[in-house]
């Protein structure tokens, strides 16, 4: 398997992982909001997941580490373009979810933690789905 094939395989794996995260994050938020209360362990796990998801959506890990040739191929021009598009999708999802949640909060009071959690989840989920979809579509 050559470098290009390795990079393609890893890119597909990354997209699958992003789809999985985009499923887990809303589920965790629903469980937290519907459940009896917030446990510290669950909150820390959620913070860890959003941190890792946000980090992987950015190209920061590729700037910090000394990247090998496969990693460089996984962060080439197209991937950077997909990152920009997915950040834009995440931004609009955050705006929309924040506005919707504020309207809902006038009828059903919500705490600041719940508002933050819904907004971050919506933004990250949209960005993860957008990035994974663009990457898989480009590989076809």
């Amino acid at each position: 398997m050559n470098l290009v094939e390795k990079a393609e395989q890893r890119s597909r794996l990354r997209a699958a992982l992003f789809y999985a995260l985009a499923t887990i994050l809303p589920l965790m938020t629903i469980l937290a909001l519907a459940g009896p209360g917030e446990s510290t362990t669950r909150l820390l796990l959620w913070l860890l997941i959003i941190g890792l998801a946000a980090l992987n959506l950015s190209s920061l890990p590729f700037r910090w580490s000394r990247c090998g040739p496969v990693s460089r191929l996984m962060n080439d021009e197209t991937t950077k373009d997909h990152r920009r598009s997915s950040f834009a999708a995440g931004f609009w999802a955050m705006i929309l979810s924040a506005a919707t949640t504020m309207v809902v909060a006038t009828f059903q009071p919500l705490g600041a933690a719940a508002l933050g959690r819904i907004t971050i989840t919506a933004g990250l989920t949209a960005a993860l789905i957008a990035f994974a979809t663009l990457e898989l579509r480009a590989s076809r």
């Binding site: 290009v4 890119s11 991937t79």
Partner: peptide, 17 residues
């Protein structure tokens, strides 16, 4: 597409898109 991608140091999806 793969050979061209390898020759210029980009991924195959870049050539494809």
């Amino acid at each position: 597409q793969g050979a061209l991608a390898e020759a210029i140091g980009v991924s195959r999806k870049t050539i494809n898109t």
